[in-house]
Simulated scan of single mutants.
Amino acid sequence: MTPHTQTKPMPVNRNALIRYRTIDQCLQNRFKKWTLDDLIKACSDAIYEYQGIDTGVSRRTVQADMEMMRSNKLGYEAPIVVVDKKYYTYSDKNYSITNSPLNQQDMQVLSEVSDLLKQFKGFNHFTDLNEMVSKLEDKIYSQKTQSTPVIDFEKNDNLKGLEWIEVIRKAIVAKKAICITYQSFKAREASTFCFSGYLLKEYRNRWFVLGRSHARNAPLLTLALDRIQTIEEHPDAYRENTTLDLATYYNDCIGVTKSPGQRDCEVVFWIDAANAPYVVTKPLHHTQKLLSEDVSGKIFSIRVIPNFELERELLGFGPKMRVLGPRILVKQIKAQFLKTLDNYDKDSIAPFTLTLNETMKENDATSVSKSSL
């Protein structure tokens, strides 16, 4: 008898995976209405970027891709719907194929990738891989054993703007200008402008893009992705970066707030003995140096550009830290603490206290009425 051989599912080819991911990213972007022609163009652009294939993607291929995504063959069951008989979108605005459970084939690929990456752990040139490998191994473990993860990495599920990361990254790589509609927290209304992006930057789980507006004499801009409303292609020629060393641009600051030509300075601060170990084990900046110490605490210095993020970092330590220099920074930090004390003054918070008391009374009354049912 011929032994029975179990047939394995046909692996999804790379081009198809690129198209699925591209369609998924498009349909997650609800600021744009996606026609079939729009999706075809997006898939063709993605295949050209990643594979160098310029033959385009056919109408039939994209339609078949969406049917495959709708089905359970890949485990997606994507809720793709057609609106007004023309526009494609997800009926569930929070859906993404990236949230789908991993299938057997995915697990095998991830295990192989994890085994490969583990070979580089411990090498100085690949220190950034350590966290990535740990995340990957934890994902594989929890999926295989159907148990809860044993590592809880910092994340923000409600973070806005993540859908723009890949759009901007592609524009930077392809050196294409984009049209951005943007509204900062201080602006009363949004503005639209042409923009050439240079660098994507993450800080405290928020994403930013460094680049230049095409307006005349426009300064260098750092835009928060969560304030971007729309991004579209723009016919203007991309404006190259010819002056900045992007690899080191943010090395002299904490956060993302800085301007070209801004000078750094030595910031000196004291921190009490009980909290000094936290600063030793997690330095405020890579330039941090220990200057002196005694039983009361330690004095450190960092060399950075004074900015909003630096002040917020120092203020976060409260009475456990004292800034010693430069003089202008000491003055600013002191002013911030005095303003904080004013917020706790009885007269200044009286209206807030009154409103809070009224709210608490309403809550108590609601609780009583519910308990009597």
Rank of each mutant, 00 (worst) to 15 (best):
M1N: 11
T2G: 12
P3D: 09
P3V: 13
P9M: 08
V12S: 06
R14P: 00
C26P: 05
Q28R: 15
R30P: 00
L36R: 11
I40C: 11
S44K: 04
S44F: 03
D45A: 09
Y48H: 07
Y48W: 05
G52Q: 06
G52P: 05
I53C: 02
R59T: 08
R60H: 06
V62W: 03
D65P: 04
M68V: 11
R70Q: 15
R70L: 04
S71W: 02
N72R: 06
L74R: 14
Y76F: 15
V83C: 05
D84M: 06
K85C: 09
Y88P: 04
D92A: 10
N94D: 15
Y95P: 01
T98A: 14
N99I: 07
P101F: 12
Q105S: 13
Q105T: 14
Q105V: 13
M107Y: 02
L110D: 04
V113Y: 05
D115M: 12
L116C: 06
E131V: 15
I140Q: 02
Y141T: 09
I151L: 12
E154M: 11
K155Q: 14
K155A: 15
L159S: 14
K160Q: 14
E163S: 14
I168E: 04
R169P: 00
A171G: 10
A171Y: 05
A174G: 10
F185N: 14
Y198P: 01
N205Q: 15
N205H: 13
W207D: 01
L210T: 03
L210K: 03
R216F: 06
D226N: 12
I231K: 02
E233I: 08
H234T: 04
Y238R: 09
R239C: 10
N251G: 01
G255K: 09
V256R: 10
T257V: 08
R263D: 09
C265F: 08
A273D: 01
Y278H: 12
Q288V: 07
K289Y: 00
D294K: 00
K298R: 15
F308N: 05
E309W: 10
E309Y: 09
F317P: 01
R327F: 02
I328G: 04
L329P: 07
V330Q: 09
K331L: 04
A335M: 08
L338S: 11
Y344Q: 10
A350I: 07
P351M: 00
T353H: 06
E358T: 11
S371F: 09
S372C: 08
